[in-house]
Computed example of a mutant assay.
Amino acid sequence: MRRFSCACLGVGIFASLVAAAPAMAADPSAGKDLAAARCRTCHGIDGIAKLPVAPHLAGESEMYLQMQLKAFRSGKRENEMMSVVAKDLTDAQIADLSAWYSSIKITATVPD
C-alpha cells in the first residue's frame, strides 16, 4: 500500500508540473518586439532599467517574470504603471516577453 501511495504522489506531482507548463513554446523574438513597443521606456529593450523605480529584467527567471506579469494582469499584484501595461497581455505575450528578458545574458563584476 505504501508503494502505491508513493507512486500516486509521484504521478500527481508530474501531472501538476505538466499542467503548469506553457501550452506553446515562447518566442523570444516576438518578446523582443513587444518589449520594444511596451517595455523599453522603463525596463529598456536590453532589460536594464531606464528609470530608478523600475527593476532590471535582464537575465531574470522566465518563470518568475511570467508569474509577476500574470499577477499584475489579474490584480493580485498592483502597481500604478504595471497594472495598466499588463492588463491586456495574453498568456502568449507574457510567455514571449518572459522568454526575451530571461534570454539576455548579464555579467557581474565583483569589486576588489
Rank of each mutant, 00 (worst) to 15 (best):
A7P: 06
C8H: 03
C8M: 15
L9R: 05
L9N: 06
G10E: 02
G10D: 12
G10I: 11
G12N: 07
F14W: 11
F14P: 00
A19S: 10
A20P: 08
A21P: 07
P22A: 13
A23K: 13
D27K: 00
D27H: 02
D27R: 03
G31Q: 05
K32S: 10
A35F: 02
A35Y: 07
A35Q: 01
A36W: 06
A36Q: 09
A36P: 08
A37I: 10
R38H: 09
R40M: 14
T41A: 15
C42A: 13
I45R: 05
D46C: 06
D46M: 09
G47M: 01
I48M: 14
L51P: 06
V53R: 05
V53Q: 06
L57V: 05
L57D: 05
E60M: 09
S61W: 04
S61G: 03
Y64N: 04
Y64M: 09
L65D: 05
Q66R: 14
Q66H: 05
M67Q: 13
Q68K: 06
A71D: 11
F72M: 05
R73G: 00
N79T: 04
N79E: 06
N79A: 12
E80R: 11
M81R: 14
M82K: 03
V85N: 07
V85P: 07
V85F: 11
D88I: 01
L89C: 10
T90F: 07
T90D: 06
D91S: 11
A95C: 10
D96Y: 00
D96Q: 07
L97V: 02
S98Q: 05
S98M: 08
A99Q: 13
S102I: 03
S103V: 03
K105L: 04
I106L: 04
A108D: 15
